[in-house]
């Protein structure tokens, strides 16, 4: 593949014609949005770090009381696997394997995404049960501002996957559908990047 890449991320390739060319502007714009979103997450991380001290904890439940590392580990594995399965969907699209394989890999990704979310919601429910709620302390506010924000992004991603599966059925693999799946892929991989920060800083960093 020695043809020029038109935009950051996986390129569809020139054999996709219009979709490949449209993707240049669309994918670039989406990258700029992701970088803007990156700053939002970065500042939430910074706030979390500045709150992770006795003053911020204010005598409330701390990391050791509130976090369930096993669950976090499973979530990490699920999200990493979903990044791989989305990659398979992107490759199936790039190599024009037909709608079947794309739908299959997207469905697997969706299931993994939903599994991730349900585990996370279970963790949140546990935290509420033991009183580790945002109104308890600044530290917990920072946690509840950051991790659920990521969960909200994952939920939006899941909704987006569902919409794309509907649009694949209704419209077929038209250029607009392809470029949207391309951008959805960037979004999904980006969420996994953010998760690296979450498990390292929020969970492991606070427990270490």
């Amino acid at each position: 593949m020695k043809h020029p890449t038109l935009h950051p991320g996986l390129n569809l390739g020139p054999h996709h014609g219009e979709a490949h060319e449209d993707a240049e502007t669309l994918a670039f714009g989406f990258w700029v949005f992701l970088m803007s979103d990156l700053i939002i997450f970065g500042l939430m991380f910074a706030t979390y770090v500045t709150m992770a001290n006795p003053m911020g904890l204010a005598g409330g439940p701390g990391p050791k009381d509130a976090y369930d590392l096993t669950s976090v580990f499973v979530q990490t594995m699920i999200l990493l696997a979903s990044s791989l399965t989305f990659g398979m969907a992107s490759l199936a699209m790039r190599f024009e394997r037909g709608r079947g394989p794309i739908t299959f890999w997207l469905s697997v990704t969706l299931l993994l995404g939903l599994a991730f979310l349900s585990l996370e919601v279970r963790d949140f429910a546990h935290m509420i049960e033991i009183g580790a709620v945002p109104s308890r302390s600044g530290f917990l506010s920072a946690f509840w501002g950051l991790v659920p924000l990521h969960a909200l992004h994952v939920a939006a991603g899941c909704l987006w996957i569902m919409i794309m599966m509907i649009q694949m059925r209704t419209f077929g693999m038209v250029p607009l559908v392809k470029t949207r799946i391309l951008r959805l892929g960037l979004f999904w991989h980006f969420l996994d990047l953010i998760w690296i920060g979450i498990f390292t800083i929020v969970y492991l960093g606070a427990l270490a």
């Binding site: 945002p134 308890r136 302390s137 600044g138 506010s141």
Partner: peptide, 12 residues
């Protein structure tokens, strides 16, 4: 009722 910037409970 978060405590990012409040006086009490570890807000800053």
């Amino acid at each position: 009722d978060f405590h990012f910037f409040t006086n009490d409970l570890g807000g800053n």
